[in-house]
Amino acid sequence: MTGIQLLAIAFAVAMAFWTYRTYRRRDLLAAEAALWFAVWIGLVFVSAFPDLLRNVVGPLKVARLLDLVMILAILLLSTIVFVLNSRVRHMERRTVELVRRLALSAEEPDGNSKQPVGQVQRDPAKTAE
């Protein structure tokens, strides 16, 4: 086993542990955690037993096993970036909508504004610019 194989296995084990901790903190759903575990276990297998994949390299017309791993990694990363980007946009839109609704609902019918929800009372002497 070469040094790069050991490094990849150590990386996958560390990431699996991090995934487990994240799952325990309930920042990941069980299905999401299972998906990430599958990725890390797959990485361990590919690193420890690279010959297992040699049979698929030929039919896929990929020159080397490392190229296949790189292509799969790029596909996975592109998917993750796309999903994250769309989720951030969605959250951003919902935040804007929430803040705007708070602003509109915080005004009383007589035209006087109530303190909006979440608004911290500031000391004007400290914040005046």
Partner: peptide, 18 residues
């Protein structure tokens, strides 16, 4: 003036819309 407060900064476009 009647004042509507965004609790966080959203940007000019969002403020105009409100």
């Amino acid at each position: 003036a009647r004042v509507f407060t965004h609790v966080i900064n959203l940007g000019k476009g969002a403020a105009m819309k409100t």
